[in-house]
């Protein structure tokens, strides 16, 4: 086999498919083995120590009756899980998580697509608008949370003042759990909408111009062109956004922590796990069980998405 064909074969195989079995431990393979380790090992070790080790530690802790701060703990098997799923905690926390995730992901993606369409218009000023819309995404969650807390403040906030001026008393955003959740969702979408918009914009701009022109020539109207051509062609983008926004939404923390420190109404899985250990309960074992549940959900979501995507989404 000539050097060239070998190279071609390898490049071809490595760009898309799992490579074919080949005889092991030829000199070449061994060298590649070492090259791989040299390149990847530092990162892999860091991930093992600072991501996997804590993950497994959490699984261990989840079987313990352990008060944070105490030096001793008791092994209790699956009791923490039983407590979680057997009490009101599970429906409350899972429900909050579902509402938060579905709304933040759904609204960010739909609005993101609409904003992307607006940004895609051939008018002046889109460059500025594009930057402006994206800007909140890069800002500190702590800072953003504080600014919006002040705006939502029912006493002196700008929103309360606006509502008063049209004769409405400000809702008790911080005291009523459903409103607190609404508030955090609004701010979360405000902060992350730009990301969806920019990614969708890129998707729109990368649509093949000839296809769009051909469709226009065939007499398809703008709405039809969008629904039957743009949207399907955007499916890789949509998938990419779906996976990233679901993952980040399930892990949303800073805004909830800053805006609703008690987590009443906003106790998503991640926040409940945090509150159980580091809030005033100090149930480190119980908290670990909740994080394991969260991890399992994240895992399932990803596996489902990957399966779905392998079949349905077409890749360029």
């Amino acid at each position: 086999m000539s050097e060239t064909t070998k190279a071609r074969r390898r490049s071809a195989s490595s760009t898309s498919q799992p490579e074919r079995k080949r005889p092991r431990f030829s000199g070449r393979t061994r060298r590649d083995f070492l090259v791989f380790l040299a390149l990847a090992l530092p990162n892999l070790i860091l991930i093992a120590v600072f991501t996997y080790r804590p993950l497994f530690a959490n699984i261990q802790y989840s079987f313990l009756d352990w008060t944070l701060g105490s030096k001793t703990a008791r092994y209790i098997g699956f009791e923490n899980y039983a407590t979680f799923f057997g009490s009101d905690d599970a429906p409350r926390v899972l429900g909050t998580t579902a509402v938060f995730t579905v709304l933040t992901v759904g609204v960010s993606m739909v609005l993101g697509l609409l904003v992307a369409l607006a940004l895609n218009a051939k008018v002046r000023g889109t460059t500025f608008a594009r930057s402006a819309v994206f800007a909140p995404y890069v800002l500190s969650g702590v800072g953003v949370g504080l600014v919006w807390m002040f705006i939502f403040d029912p006493g002196y906030g700008a929103l309360a003042w606006f509502l008063r001026s049209i004769g409405i008393a400000s809702p008790q955003w911080f005291n009523e759990p459903p409103l607190a959740l609404t508030m955090v969702i609004i701010v979360y979408v405000w902060k992350n909408l730009g990301y969806c918009a920019i990614v969708y914009l890129a998707g729109l701009q990368s649509l093949p111009a000839d296809v769009m022109e051909a469709a226009a020539l065939d007499g398809a109207g703008a709405g039809r062109r969008f629904l039957s051509i743009s949207l399907p062609l955007l499916s890789p983008t949509t998938f990419f956004l779906l996976i990233t926004t679901i993952l980040s939404s399930l892990q949303a923390f800073d805004l909830i922590r800053i805006m609703t420190p008690l987590g009443s109404g906003t106790s998503t899985l991640i926040y409940e796990a945090y509150m159980q250990a580091f809030g005033s309960y100090n149930r480190a074992g119980y908290s670990a069980a909740i994080s394991v549940v969260l991890f399992a959900i994240l895992l399932v979501v990803t596996v489902v998405q990957i399966r779905f995507v392998e079949r349905k989404v077409h890749y360029a």
């Binding site: 799992p18 892999l44 991930i47 804590p54 993952l247 480190a284 994080s291 991890f295 994240l298």
Partner: peptide, 23 residues
């Protein structure tokens, strides 16, 4: 390679807050 990639993908799903105490 695919195992390594799966491990990396899974690591993506470990919420950082979970790692606070052990780390």
């Amino acid at each position: 390679k695919n195992v390594v990639f799966i491990l990396i993908l899974v690591a993506l799903m470990v919420p950082p807050q979970v790692a606070i105490l052990p780390n």
